[in-house]
Design a protein around this nucleic acid. Structure first.
Lengths: 335, 335
DNA sequence: CTGTTAGCGCTTTCAG
DNA sequence: CTGAAAGCGCTAACAG
């Protein structure tokens, strides 16, 4: 790789001058500028980003902690949102997976910090609030996505889970359903789970319906879990005309289970999911769901991070997002 | 951030000694070692990776070019395979998306190179062979995944597409099907498409069946394309008892179309896909498909890259992979 | 075993 | 407008 020295030699100028044209950090005589540009092209020169980072104390990288890129399209979409805006700012994104594990999340954050990322965007599920707010107090700007860290509310981009489920549930209520089963996560510690449960309870309460515990199925929040939870629900024999799901994945599993047992969807049971994963429209029948605007949220988090690291004011950036209903074919009016 | 100097001062040793304990690059008196370790912990010292990279000419990063992390689980799984082995080697992975676009792929590779990645793993679809082999001839080790670059065969990790489709098709043939439709990509330039088409033709030929062009549906290789292609196929009115798909996504779309029109699957038409995406088992009915071992392939590519950058022999690493049949419920014997 | 020293490639004062 | 020079934090000879 050619260095700045090679360029300066070939262009017959000092390295400072080369540096100036690289960074347009000061005026340079047009003729010299031309010579430098020519030499750069000739030598196929690319400034060494490590040397730049070392001296300028800027890596031009924003580090991102995700759960698991393979767990579904969720994090991939989030990354797309982030990358789009980071890219536009001519910076890089560097990702690490925490796999929802405390030790690994901590390790990943350390690694990101050691790489001197200029800012961090964290989707941490496993780390305690204290640790996170301590991090937020450090010198590197940190923004949290999908989590409300006490004391760092102005750095948290989040979705109103409760309102989202309420929307979904209301849609079912509006269609005349009263016996609505809820298939949800079995992780009691999981804040999203609590909030969504609250949304379900809230919507029902508003409609004057009491929650029937027998209509709540819990399992791991993936397709298989949805299948398992639905199997258990069916075994209880308590009738229901609609199913609300913690997420589309669980709902896909639940639908599989229902279909296998000969239920007609939506004729016999209506179903609504949460997330609007890309496959939602290819599930049979096309899934009515509530859209998790994760890509937009990722973008917003990135904008916030960029503002913070530029010491620009971050006012005017909306941090709270809402899930909107996407009506497709898995819900029908009660007879 | 504390520097090596701070540590050396606190531990009353020279920076060289600190460097030695950091890298265990030479023996250090036990007492001093203890002192250094203590100081490092006390100061929460993390070596500046840019300084390390600058002087040692090693970034400990492997760069990866993917198509689009959001396009489905494919690249995410590939990344998981890669990250697992890169992580084990205590190195980092840095990803960029090329979005199957020539200009962006080129730009991403340049960016990766400028970041002085120690090695590159490329999933390039858009760049011409020449450009790729030129890259491979450069000083940074490059391995290609999912593409056979002439002259760099020992750096290409690939799937035998033709054999995979042949396997899938044979499964249908074995079940007694003779009229097998093929729903495939409409991109004639696309090598994978050509190879899979060849596999279809080959399997049929081997069974003494002539290919009927009216049984081939082409469209963009995603779910929507599958829907479109199937619609067109049905419109032609040529009977078929089974459908083979270019990938699971297309097949999901095709199934949607069939189901909508009241066809029973697999009773009236058997279906087999290609890829075994995670959702394959949640598609209704559970999809019989052929597994694309992309995670394993990613891992293999990473192993190869690691060997290359360590100048270790790469013999013994299998570069060619085969897709294996995963029989589920979307195929049935002909009456 | 240990300290001194010379850079890695680049940015940034500071004098001209 | 331009060049010289001083580092950024670290590793790797090279002498002790």
């Amino acid at each position: 790789m050619a260095t700045i020295k090679d360029v300066s030699r070939m262009a017959n100028v000092s390295i400072s001058t080369v540096s100036r044209v690289i960074n347009s950090t000061a005026q340079v005589a047009p003729e010299k500028k031309v010579a430098v540009l020519a030499a750069m092209k000739e030598l196929n020169f690319r400034p060494n980003s490590f040397a730049q980072a070392l001296v300028s104390k800027r890596s031009n990288c924003v580090g991102v902690l995700v759960g698991d890129l393979c767990g579904g399209p969720f994090f991939a979409q989030m990354m797309r949102g982030i990358e789009t805006v980071v890219d536009r700012a001519d910076k890089f994104t560097i990702v690490m997976s925490g796999n929802h594990d405390e030790v690994r999340e901590r390790h990943a954050i350390q690694a990101l910090l050691q790489r001197q990322c200029d800012a961090l965007i964290l989707h941490s599920k496993a780390l305690p609030d204290e640790e996170l707010s301590e991090l937020a107090a450090g010198s590197t700007p940190v923004v949290f996505i999908n989590r409300q860290v006490p004391g760092a509310e102005d750095r948290c981009v989040w979705l109103d889970n409760q309102a989202g489920i309420t929307t979904a549930c209301q849609h079912l209520l509006d269609a005349g359903h009263h016996q609505i089963a809820f298939v949800t996560s079995d992780d009691e510690e999981f804040v999203d789970g609590q909030q969504r449960m609250a949304g379900y309870t809230h919507a029902l309460a508003r409609a004057g319906i009491e929650v029937n515990p027998a209509l709540i199925g819990r399992a791991f929040a993936d397709e298989n879990g949805g299948y398992v939870a639905m199997t258990a629900l069916l075994a209880r024999g308590v009738p229901f005309s609609a199913v609300l799901g913690f997420n589309d994945a669980m709902v896909a599993g639940a639908i599989s289970c229902l279909l296998e047992r000969g239920y007609k969807i939506p004729q016999q049971v209506s179903v609504v999911g949460f997330d609007d994963i890309p496959y939602a429209r290819y599930i049979y029948p096309k899934l009515t769901t509530v859209r998790y605007p994760i890509e937009a949220m990722g973008g917003r988090a990135a904008e916030l991070a960029l503002r913070l690291l530029d010491h620009k004011p971050a006012e005017g950036l909306t941090l709270k997002f809402e899930a909107e209903l996407v009506a497709r074919e898995s819900v029908t009016e009660m007879a």
